[in-house]
């Protein structure tokens, strides 16, 4: 980028691009303050942090907070919950979005209008807040006139109402299906777009070869979007420690299922703000999450790049 030959050239360029540079300065400062400056706060993780002392008066205690973190049984519990819910979310959201896209794609000809309506409606929940979605879920699952319990009773599938949100073994699945409800339609957009780039001649050839509808879906459509699926799967796997915060916090707020509902983010929040002097420990826990996330993300992005190139060759 920089011309080897002369410093003068560089300064000339600077002068010529003065406007662009001046516009960029506030953005540079903005990112510096809001994204990079907080990194300084990570030093807290290595201090016996006392809010009333200045930075230079803090006592440095090395990795004590991390040692405490790794010997804390709660830490292993929240890690288990985080990974468990992440994997359920990942698998459920992929399978449902792909299946939804595949079947939606089958609606052609006279069903075109219907397809449009289904699509429009299916994107909608993506735009609702987690508060609203959790409110809807807790209404639907309520013991007190919730539609799911009413339906189960009416069809005779159960004899007594089920306290869905009070039962630890249901919680991860409730979170998983809540995620599906909210994002299935939205996630399917990318697959529907990928499907449109499949050569229509392939379908005709398959039809001549005697493949039925499902045969074509399985042998043409699915392989046609395979690379999209793989790349998205790898990219999403990078966010494995982001199992979510809001759903678990709200749906788990009745306190009956805390054992399985608390994720690493909730742990950071509760330890950091909930206990006096918890700031430093909470920072250490948050830092652990960030460091692991960055490593996993970088790895996944590298793999996705590599797979993407492989595909092109």
């Amino acid at each position: 980028m920089f011309n080897k030959s002369a410093k003068g050239n560089f300064l000339d360029e600077v002068r010529k691009q003065k406007a662009l540079i001046l516009i960029s300065v506030p953005y540079f400062v903005y990112f510096l303050i809001f994204s990079y400056l907080p990194l300084w706060g990570l030093t807290m993780a290595f201090q016996n942090y006392k809010p009333q002392l200045s930075f230079f008066e803090q006592e440095w205690i090395g990795f004590t907070h991390f040692r405490n973190l790794f010997t804390d049984p709660d830490f292993y519990r929240v890690m288990r919950n985080t990974l468990g819910m992440s994997i359920i979310n990942l698998v459920l959201s992929f399978v449902t979005a792909i299946a939804f896209a595949l079947f939606l794609n089958e609606l052609t000809g006279p069903f075109f209008k219907f397809k449009r309506v289904v699509q429009t409606i299916s994107y909608m929940p993506h735009f609702l807040s987690w508060i609203i979605v959790c409110g809807l879920v807790s209404n639907a699952l309520s013991m007190d006139g919730g539609i799911i319990n009413e339906l189960l009773l009416a069809t005779g599938l159960v004899k007594n109402k089920i306290h869905f949100l009070g039962e630890a073994s249901y919680f991860w699945w409730i979170v998983g299906f809540t995620n599906v409800w909210k994002s299935m339609g939205w996630n399917s957009i990318i697959y529907l777009a990928a499907i449109t780039s499949i050569d229509p001649a392939l379908y005709e050839a398959a039809a001549i070869d005697g493949y039925g509808r499902f045969g074509r879906m399985w042998h043409i459509t699915l392989p046609g979007i395979k690379s999209t699926i793989i790349i998205l799967l790898i990219l999403n796997a990078g966010w494995i420690l982001n199992a979510g915060f809001e759903v678990q916090y709200i749906l788990g707020s009745n306190g009956l299922v805390l054992d399985v509902s608390e994720t690493i983010d909730i742990f950071v929040l509760k330890r950091g703000f909930g206990r006096s002097g918890g700031f430093a420990f909470g920072t250490a826990a948050g830092m652990f999450k960030t460091v692991v996330s960055v490593i996993v993300l970088t790895l996944c992005n590298k793999i996705a790049d590599w797979v993407g190139e492989e595909k092109l060759i």
């Binding site: 662009l20 994204s35 948050g286 970088t298």
Partner: peptide, 30 residues
């Protein structure tokens, strides 16, 4: 703008913010 001399630097500087995250408590202190 392709010819902008700080384009690469600023792009990287910005994209990094998508991945690095100091966490809730440092954010609160800031």
């Amino acid at each position: 703008r392709k010819e902008f001399i700080f384009r690469k630097f600023l792009t990287t500087f910005m994209i990094m913010t998508m991945y690095i995250n100091a966490g809730l408590i440092p954010q609160y202190f800031l």
